[in-house]
């Protein structure tokens, strides 16, 4: 069956579009809605959003692939994103990533077989004074230590 929004999401879509002076300006928020509904933005989701937004699928694909926060492939329930840019690197970001790789048994860009965690390295998240840090889904975790990471992973089922 082709992908489509639930009635509630469709309502949210209409409300979102209505806030903007032009429909196309709602592209980024609409893609967030689609990602929340479908889990990731694969070809079918892109085609559906293109139809909703009166745009060519190729253009929507171009937008989705440009930004790091749209996932074109399925990801784990907890998306761990370790900042690797200079201020975090000065405080052991590489060691944080190494620790997580060992702990989770996966490399960067991979998901654990149980679908629980995806590990990614990302660029500066504007949290340099509390380095090293990582973002998991929407939340920031700062001043990381191995013990702190252990506790966090334990709490993320």
């Amino acid at each position: 069956m082709a992908l489509e929004f639930s009635p509630e999401t469709l309502k949210a879509f209409e409300a979102t579009v209505a806030r903007y002076p032009k429909k196309e300006a709602a592209m980024l928020p609409v893609l967030y809605l689609a990602q929340r509904e479908f889990g990731h933005l694969g070809p079918e989701a892109i085609e559906y959003v293109a139809k909703l937004m009166d745009q060519a699928p190729a253009r929507v694909h171009g937008v989705v692939s440009f930004y790091t926060m749209y996932n074109m492939k399925p990801i784990g329930r907890h998306h761990i994103q370790v900042c690797r840019t200079l201020p975090c690197a000065l405080h052991g970001a590489e060691e944080v990533t190494g620790f997580l790789k060992k702990k989770l048994g996966i490399d960067c860009g991979q998901t654990t077989p149980d679908g629980r965690f995806t590990l990614t390295e990302v660029e500066c998240l504007a949290s340099c004074g509390t380095a090293p840090m990582m973002q998991v889904n929407d939340d920031y975790y700062e001043n990381l230590t191995e013990e702190k990471i252990d506790q966090l992973l334990e709490a993320m089922k």
């Binding site: 840019t85 500066c124 004074g129």
Partner: peptide, 11 residues
């Protein structure tokens, strides 16, 4: 859109 490495004042 604060993203400059080393900058976290706007946040």
């Amino acid at each position: 859109d604060e993203s400059e490495p080393g900058t976290f004042k706007d946040r």
